[in-house]
Design a protein around this nucleic acid. Structure first.
Length: 555
RNA sequence: GUGCCCGUAGCUCAACUGGAUAGAGCACUGCCCUUCUAAGGCAGGGGUUACAGGUUCGAUUCCUGUCGGGCACACCA
């Protein structure tokens, strides 16, 4: 099992050696890439073209010299010069065939790496205010964040998943008053209903439950409705607990879990906000003006200074945010990634500025952010406007019920967070076979059906040397690529790459399936082909696992 | 007006972070099931990569500008 499978880094080493011989004085980055066309080999290196200028020679001549200096390797079939000076490397089929046994031996471990080396990383995601059910935007955050965590964990990071509740401040007060009005029998169509009050029906549910003195369980607390219309504090407590429970249930249905829940209110009650303010004042980056306390965020790249303490004595929201992130740092997270909607992007500069002002050794540019763009929802060809206050929006729960957890997760995680996402509910439901997630799951189910017909196979005996058809070689290479895809997804914080990879892998398998019969009379051939099938199924399972999507045995 | 993200086939999206002839799915046309799941495969048409410059051996990718879409620009969170 000592076979070389990471051809890319293997070749990079060989070319580095060749570079040392050909141009010992010259610095160049060794880049090994996968050509688009099979005729260009399995891997290509553009080193010769990079060296043309410094060496003042033609790229093709340099390529000759590099090839001559390339150390021998038994995984290389042949090396060619092509085009302007590309060096194309062909890998022996035997070296690729080894992947089958590697996968079957490693099973769920296949594709895992150790770039993270056990270092701690904390990923904060979803972090919805407990003022209503989770909507599709939170769903995108949940899907992307969870998959990102999985990918980081698969790369050797020690991941902590965290959810931050903004359970203090104006929005919560607004929630409380909306519930209180409902308790008093006042509805949103009443003229006295405040303009920015929450209008959704769920507010009435909270009120009913409170008045009925029901008990809700959220996190580790049990809160019972007091039934007193005038007890603002009791209503606030109950409403927050009620909605947290709803969110917890939605997240559980979405198969997303968290290690830590942090409460904004706790930052106040534990004195962390006050302590942060004191540190900021001591740092000398604050000043009083117009009866308010300001932080000179312009010292750290902001375009204007920001108010910390308002004239009314309350803090602006970014103060507890800075306190929260200081807390993360003090908990030992030298790496923190915040997955949020793009509408939060203006906070990045302020939070980072506040942390720099504290001058406690936090590096510039800490923490990292992954911002996902907005999700547009189409229903009946019409855009559904998301407005919590108006009460009209698509909840995550609706999507899970209508579209299914697997398809919803796939849809929301399968695109670059940088681009806006159109979620067409009709497409995802009525024509579910158009959904790519079924295409991938179908490949897995097909394999399982075939394997089920042959009990007691011992793949260790398989002669993988027989796997040399075009379809088989393509599939082998695809299986080899998996580890690299996981590594790239973790490095670039781009979990959607897993989804694209799986679609390609499934396509390669379906093509193989249509071109090849597995259950043939020749037992040796059969065993070899089934071993490749089994390895493919394993990689599909591993990849879908990272996306949090099931790999069913039958469909 | 300022900052950030985006603009690729009719639609939804790729393109290994600067590589070779820009690829998939959906839709459209025609084939392939008495054989392991046709939720599949094969073949075909469809492109001035929004536009204009620039950087270099080479640009969908990087830089500048223009146009278009989204988000954010409070002593709201």
């Amino acid at each position: 099992m000592s076979a070389v499978l990471n051809f890319k880094s293997h070749l990079a080493h060989l070319f580095a050696e060749a570079l040392r011989v050909v141009a010992p004085e010259t610095q160049a980055t060794i880049l090994i890439e996968r050509p688009k066309q099979a005729s260009h080999g399995d891997y290509a290196c553009n080193l010769a073209m990079q060296l043309a200028k410094p060496l003042r020679q033609s790229p093709r001549n340099i390529a000759q010299a590099l090839i001559a200096a390339l150390p021998a390797s038994d995984v290389i079939e042949k090396v060619e010069i092509a085009g302007a000076g590309f060096i194309n490397v062909f890998i022996t089929t035997a070296a690729k065939q080894a992947v089958v046994k590697t996968v079957l031996h490693a099973e769920a471990e296949y594709g895992r790496g150790n770039i993270g080396a056990g270092r701690k990383v904390q990923v904060e995601f979803v972090s919805a205010n407990p003022t209503g059910p989770l909507h599709i935007g939170h769903g995108r955050g949940a899907a992307v964040g969870d998959c990102l965590c999985n990918v980081l964990a698969a790369s050797g990071w020690d991941v902590t998943r965290e959810f931050y509740y903004n359970d203090a401040g104006a929005q919560i007060d607004n929630l409380r008053s909306s519930v209180q009005l409902r308790c008093q029998g006042i509805t949103p169509d009443d003229p006295s209903w405040p303009e920015n009050g929450y209008r959704g029906d769920y507010i009435a549910d909270v009120a009913r439950s409170y008045m009925a003195q029901e008990t809700v369980e959220a996190d580790d607390q049990h809160i019972t409705g007091k039934g007193d219309v005038h007890d603002k504090e009791a209503i606030r407590h109950f409403a927050v607990a009620y909605l947290r429970r709803e969110q917890d249930q939605d997240l559980r249905a979405f198969r997303v879990g968290f290690d830590v829940f942090s409460l904004e209110s706790a930052l106040y009650s534990e004195g962390k906000v006050a302590a942060t303010v004191e540190k900021l004042i001591a740092s000398g980056h604050t000043y009083e003006q117009d009866d308010a306390l300001w932080l000179r965020t312009t010292d750290f790249g902001d375009d204007k200074d920001r108010v910390m303490r308002k004239t009314d004595g309350g803090f602006t929201y970014f103060v507890p945010d800075v306190a929260y992130h200081l807390d993360k740092w003090q908990r030992g997270f030298t790496r923190v990634i915040n997955e949020q909607g793009a509408d939060h992007h203006s906070t990045i500069t302020r939070v980072r500025a506040g942390l720099q002002a504290l001058n406690v050794g936090i590096p510039q540019g800490w923490p990292d952010y992954v911002l996902h763009q907005m999700v547009t929802v189409l229903r009946n060809g019409q855009e559904v406007k998301i407005s919590k206050r108006a009460g009209s929006y698509v909840t995550l729960r609706d999507l899970i019920d209508e579209v299914g957890c697997d398809a919803t997760r796939y849809f929301l995680a399968a695109r670059s967070p940088d681009s806006q996402l159109v979620f067409d509910i009709d497409l995802a439901t009525s024509k579910s076979n158009e959904n790519p997630v079924y295409y991938i799951q179908y490949a897995h189910a097909r394999i399982q059906t075939v394997l089920k017909q042959c009990e007691g196979l011992v793949f260790g005996d398989a002669n993988v040397g027989l796997l040399d058809s075009e379809e088989e070689k393509t599939l082998l290479q695809q299986l080899i690529d998996y580890s690299e895809v996981v590594e790239t997804a973790a490095h670039d914080l781009a979990p959607h790459l897993i989804a694209f990879y799986l679609k390609d892998l499934a396509a390669d398998f379906h093509r193989y399936y249509n071109a090849t019969r597995f259950l043939v009379d020749d037992e040796v051939v059969k065993l070899a082909r089934l071993s490749l099938c089994a390895a493919t199924a394993q990689v599909i399972r591993n990849g879908l696992g990272l996306l949090g999507v099931n790999a069913p045995d039958t469909m």
